[in-house]
Design a binder for these strands. Structure first.
Length: 205
DNA sequence: CGCACGATGCGCT
DNA sequence: GCGCATCGTGCGA
């Protein structure tokens, strides 16, 4: 299926989806659509890579309890947790599980689906659009935030009613999801909590 | 307070 | 494969 045809008949996940077990949500998000409605445009990507981060997980920002930065992780599932890393990148997370549990799913990569040229310009301002490079526009957690225009101003916003939403075709199960250890973590590195679509060209490297 | 460092990305070797 | 940009966060003092 190509381009935007696949976007018809999609509905946002209801909040109950986000209250489920974090690892299950991470797995279920593969193949769902991440949508940023900017007011002018609707930027859409297909999620192809996620990672689960839980309470009592030494790799998780929530490991040492709530702080000003990580407070959104301890809210009820269904909001965004967007944090700033390495002095230059934002990373987008889906908060999961009931209030009081510090859990989230990091979205690591998307396939650009709609408004590709706007995403391109967000990544490479002033550079001519190159269709051949589309699969790598958003193949990393920092890259996808840049491409979709997701920033810390979206931190804490509702994923059910807010400008950033997650859509799926309910009742359809993803055909196949691959599993591995998480990327870029030192502690908790052995846990198999990274999920990805191995057939996608947009999985991070 | 001070400071080490990170759920990254990019360019160079 | 390696070094580095760049800065908010949070731990230790």
């Amino acid at each position: 299926m190509s381009a935007e045809n696949q976007l018809t008949g999609l509905t946002p996940f209801s909040q109950g989806f986000f209250l489920q077990d974090t690892v299950e949500v991470a797995r279920s998000l593969i193949g769902a659509y991440l949508v940023h409605s900017t007011g002018n445009d609707e930027l859409v990507g297909r999620i192809v890579e996620t990672e689960a981060y839980r309470e009592n997980d030494p790799a998780s920002h929530s490991y040492r309890g709530p702080t000003r930065r990580t407070l959104p992780m301890f809210s009820a599932g269904g909001i965004a947790y967007v944090y700033f890393i390495y002095g230059m990148y934002d990373c987008f997370n889906v908060v999961t599980e009931p209030k009081g549990t510090g859990c989230a799913v990091l979205v690591r990569a998307i396939e650009p689906i709609k408004n590709l040229e706007i995403m391109w310009n967000n990544r490479f301002p002033g550079t001519p659009f190159d269709p051949a490079m589309v699969p790598s526009i958003a193949d990393g957690p920092g890259k996808l935030c840049r491409a979709l225009g997701i920033t810390r101003k979206h931190n804490g916003t509702s994923l059910v009613h807010g400008p950033v939403r997650i859509l799926s075709r309910l009742g359809v199960r993803p055909s196949e999801v691959s599993v591995s250890r998480r990327i870029g973590v030192k502690k908790g590195a052995e846990l198999p909590w990274r999920f990805f679509d191995a057939t996608s060209e947009s999985v991070s490297r």
